[in-house]
């Protein structure tokens, strides 16, 4: 009897594990999976790519002497119904702007998520006798930003006559010249999705 029970358990386990869907890695270069009503990495890649292309093409980052502008990252507001870390968008933009060699990003000032507190912390060592004062960061060395990048992601849900749901996502960004307060570049990318009214986009 015991043998029958243990054999049944083994067969049942094998059946369950054999039938379970395999976990697959996503091929980021050729993702043929269907769209989701929420925002996924494909949407952030598309929005960030378009924003960087637009910014570089606008000429706003063309400094006369061929030097690079210093950009501070200001607030990127998430005005959607989803829990989004806006760094998913901002990090991609920062990386591509640095690679372009047309701008550098400061982590000394900016919104909380984009500041490296160590910039300030290490300067406290200037009065600390435990540290070799020749190796500490001196006052007056931090570079102030020329430009500030800010933005917002907006979501709008629309119920359609046929019972379907339309979700519109607006990615809006501005690049402000800090000495004048004038926006040198602005753009908006819209990503729209339409699906079942039962789908929940938050």
């Amino acid at each position: 009897m015991k043998k029958i029970i243990s054999s049944s358990i083994i067969i049942a386990t094998l059946l369950i594990t054999g039938c379970a869907d395999k976990t697959e890695r996503i091929d980021l270069n050729h993702d043929t999976a269907g769209q989701v009503m929420g925002l996924d990495y494909r949407d952030f890649n598309e929005a960030a790519g378009k924003m960087v292309q637009s910014m570089l093409a606008s000429g706003a980052l063309d400094k006369k002497d061929g030097d690079r502008f210093v950009i501070a990252i200001s607030d990127i507001k998430n005005d959607t119904m989803q829990h989004i870390d806006t760094d998913q968008l901002v990090k991609k933009i920062r990386v591509d702007l640095l690679r372009s060699k047309r701008a550098v990003i400061t982590t000394a000032v900016g919104s909380d998520a984009n500041v490296d507190k160590m910039n300030k912390e290490v300067r406290k060592l200037n009065d600390d006798a435990d540290f070799n004062q020749r190796t500490t960061q001196k006052k007056g060395q931090l570079i102030a930003p020329d430009l500030s990048l800010s933005g917002k992601i907006i979501q709008k849900n629309i119920s359609m006559d046929d019972g379907k749901q339309q979700v519109e996502y607006y990615f809006q960004m501005s690049l402000t010249e800090l000495s004048s307060g004038l926006a040198w570049w602005e753009d908006e990318t819209i990503i729209g999705k339409r699906g079942s009214g039962k789908s929940v986009a938050w």
Binding site: H30, D31, T32, A33, L56, K101, R102
Partner: peptide, 21 residues
């Protein structure tokens, strides 16, 4: 398309069918 860097000198454009999603 604008080059991603001032170092970019060569390019190749690939055109393809859309994905079915």
């Amino acid at each position: 398309v604008i080059a991603p860097s001032i170092d970019a000198v060569e390019y190749m454009v690939y055109i393809n069918e859309p994905l079915d999603n």
